[in-house]
Deep mutational scan, measured.
Amino acid sequence: SGEEFIAMYTYESSEQGDLTFQQGDVILVTKKDGDWWTGTVGDKAGVFPSNYVRLKD
């Protein structure tokens, strides 16, 4: 389980282990570690910068 966040911006990365997503995607955040959080979008999982998302209303 985790908290749902909304992507405010598209995040694209070629780094292994990074979670890429489109603006407006719902991200289920499973771990918060400083500026880099872990989460899932659909069947993808990985880390992403926390300043790209906001808490879902």
Rank of each mutant, 00 (worst) to 15 (best):
V26P: 09
D35Q: 05
G17N: 12
V41C: 06
I6E: 10
L55H: 09
G24P: 00
D18C: 14
K31Y: 06
G39Y: 01
S14L: 12
K56T: 11
P49D: 01
Q16N: 13
E15W: 08
D43P: 10
V29Q: 03
G42E: 08
K56F: 09
T38H: 05
G2S: 14
T40V: 11
K31R: 09
V47A: 11
E3C: 07
D25V: 01
E12S: 13
N51V: 12
L28A: 12
I6S: 08
K32W: 03
D57R: 04
N51C: 09
G46T: 00
D33E: 10
K56M: 15
W36M: 14
D33M: 11
T40C: 12
M8A: 13
T10H: 10
K56L: 08
Q22N: 15
W36I: 08
V47L: 13
I6M: 06
E12N: 09
T10R: 06
V29I: 05
K56G: 10
V41A: 14
D25E: 14
D43Q: 13
T30C: 07
D18G: 14
A7W: 00
E12D: 11
G24L: 01
K44I: 01
D33T: 11
A45P: 01
S13Y: 01
W37S: 04
K31S: 14
G39T: 00
E3V: 11
T10V: 04
D35L: 11
K32M: 15
E3N: 11
D43A: 12
V53T: 04
I6G: 04
T20Y: 07
Y11N: 03
L55I: 10
V41T: 09
G42V: 03
R54P: 03
T40M: 15
G17Q: 04
G17P: 05
Q22T: 10
A45G: 10
M8E: 13
L55G: 15
V41G: 04
E15G: 10
T40Y: 14
S1V: 11
F5N: 04
A45V: 14
F21C: 02
N51I: 05
L55V: 10
D57H: 07
V26G: 04
E4C: 07
D35H: 15
V29E: 03
G2I: 08
F21H: 03
E3I: 13
G46K: 00
F48R: 02
E4A: 06
Y52F: 15
M8L: 11
G46Y: 00
F48S: 04
L55D: 07
Y52D: 04
T20H: 10
S1I: 15
E15V: 13
Y52H: 05
L19I: 08
T40F: 05
V53P: 02
V29S: 02
N51P: 02
M8N: 06
V47N: 08
N51R: 10
K31T: 08
L19G: 01
V47S: 14
V47W: 08
T38W: 11
P49L: 02
W36V: 13
Q23H: 12
Q22M: 12
F21K: 04
G2R: 07
D35A: 12
G24V: 00
W37T: 01
T20D: 07
K32D: 02
M8T: 08
F5Q: 03
R54W: 10
I6W: 02
D43R: 10
T20P: 10
V53I: 04
I6L: 08
Q16V: 10
D25H: 00
E4R: 07
L28P: 05
L28G: 05
D25F: 00
V29R: 02
T20M: 08
F5D: 02
I6N: 05
R54N: 09
Q23I: 09
T20S: 13
L55E: 10
L19M: 04
V26N: 06
K31E: 14
Y52Q: 04
T10Y: 09
I6C: 07
E4Y: 08
F5H: 10
M8D: 07
E15A: 14
D25N: 05
Q23F: 04
D43E: 10
W37G: 00
W36L: 11
G24A: 04
A45M: 13
E3T: 11
S14W: 09
T30K: 06
L55K: 06
G42W: 02
D25I: 00
M8S: 12
D25S: 08
S1D: 12
D43I: 09
Q23G: 07
W36N: 08
D35S: 15
V53D: 02
D18P: 02
E15I: 10
Y11S: 02
F48D: 03
L28H: 15
T38R: 11
S50H: 03
Q22I: 09
S13W: 01
L28C: 11
W37H: 05
